[in-house]
Every structure is written in structure tokens, then in C-alpha cells.
């Protein structure tokens, strides 16, 4: 039930673009909402949004009562892109896991912070900044969390040399 309503709400962000069907994503995939086979992938909805649609997408999930599971990044060095992945889930028995992802240019990785919506995003964003150097615009305290306080390196970048 919640799956359909969330899918519709997220789909509304992409008015005008081609609605994605349940098929596996083509590479490279465009922005849009896909349903995924839970048995294989472990989540139900997979939405790729533009960085400026992020707050709108997260607000939809917040209003629908989702809790924040985690935030992380992926360095796609070949495509010269950086991906930020947000995981959301629910406390009730209407199981629905939603993944929001956004891609930004690798040399200018800036996405807006969602810690204004989910306070718990604060540490996850700091951690993602530690590991990838992704900047979260508007974050209240974007200093190293897990790395040493004077760290100026980002160990999960694919071109990182220890």
C-alpha cells in the first residue's frame, strides 16, 4: 500500500520525463523511479534524482513516516561522477525500503544537506564527507567525524593512495 503511494509521490517529481517501468535500469540510467525485486536487491523503490530535487524527495519520505537508515557515497571514477545514496525504511509492518540516489560531478561534489529534515543525517553526512570529500551544502558542522580532526584525505576515493 505505502509502496504505491510513495512511488506515485516520488514519480510526481519527474513530471514530463518518461515514466520508468519495473524493468532493470539501463546503463547509464536516467533520473526516475524504479521498482526493484526485493528478493534480489533487498529494497523496493529506487529513485535517482537530481541534486536540486533531493530535498523534495526526502520531504516526501519524511511526511510518509519513513526513518533514515543511512547515507553513503560511491565513487564512479570512470564516469567521472560521485553518487550519494540515501536509505530509508519504515517501522511498521507495511515493509517498504526506499533508496534515493543522486549523482554529482566528481570534481565538484556538492549536494544539499538533509540534516534540516532528518537530524540523524548529520553524522552520516559528515562520515560521507570524510570518506569521499562530498560537500553537503548547509551542513551545520562539516568537520571530520571518524577520521582524525586534521585529516585532509578521503580514503574511499578510487584514486586514493595511502
Amino acid at each position: 500500500m505505502i509502496l504505491e503511494t510513495t512511488q506515485q509521490a516520488l514519480q510526481a517529481l519527474f513530471a514530463g520525463s518518461v515514466p520508468a517501468d519495473g524493468a532493470e535500469a539501463a546503463t547509464p540510467r536516467g533520473n526516475g523511479v524504479l521498482t526493484r525485486d526485493y528478493k534480489i536487491h533487498g529494497y523496493h523503490l529506487d529513485a535517482q534524482v537530481a541534486a536540486d530535487q533531493l530535498l523534495a524527495a526526502v520531504t516526501i519520505l519524511d511526511q510518509a513516516g519513513f526513518f533514515i537508515e543511512s547515507i553513503t557515497g560511491v565513487d564512479w571514477i570512470k564516469e567521472n561522477q560521485m553518487e550519494v545514496i540515501y536509505d530509508f525504511s519504515r517501522y511498521d509492518f507495511d515493509t517498504c525500503r526506499v533508496v534515493i540516489r543522486t549523482r554529482v560531478p566528481r570534481d565538484q561534489p556538492i549536494v544539499p544537506t538533509i540534516s534540516t529534515i532528518y537530524a540523524g543525517a548529520n553524522w552520516h553526512e559528515r562520515e560521507t564527507h570524510d570518506f569521499f570529500g562530498i560537500k553537503f551544502a548547509g551542513h551545520p558542522h562539516l568537520v571530520p567525524l571518524l577520521l582524525p580532526e586534521d585529516a585532509d584525505f578521503h580514503p574511499l576515493l578510487k584514486d586514493f593512495k595511502a
Partner: peptide
């Protein structure tokens, strides 16, 4: 991109594996 959650003694532990088809994970969260 694969995700698995389990209930550990402390709560919901999740593991995300982004695979590029190799024998190592491309990204493991």
C-alpha cells in the same frame, strides 16, 4: 546494488554491496 538488514543485539544492522561484477565489492557500506 544489494542491501541486507538483520536484527543484531543492538538493532538493525545493514550491509550494502555495490558490485561491478568483480570478485571484490566495488563499494561496501
Amino acid at each position: 546494488d544489494f542491501y541486507q538488514a538483520v536484527e543484531t543485539a543492538r538493532g538493525s544492522f545493514g550491509i550494502r554491496i555495490v558490485s561491478d561484477g568483480d570478485k571484490n565489492a566495488y563499494r561496501l557500506k
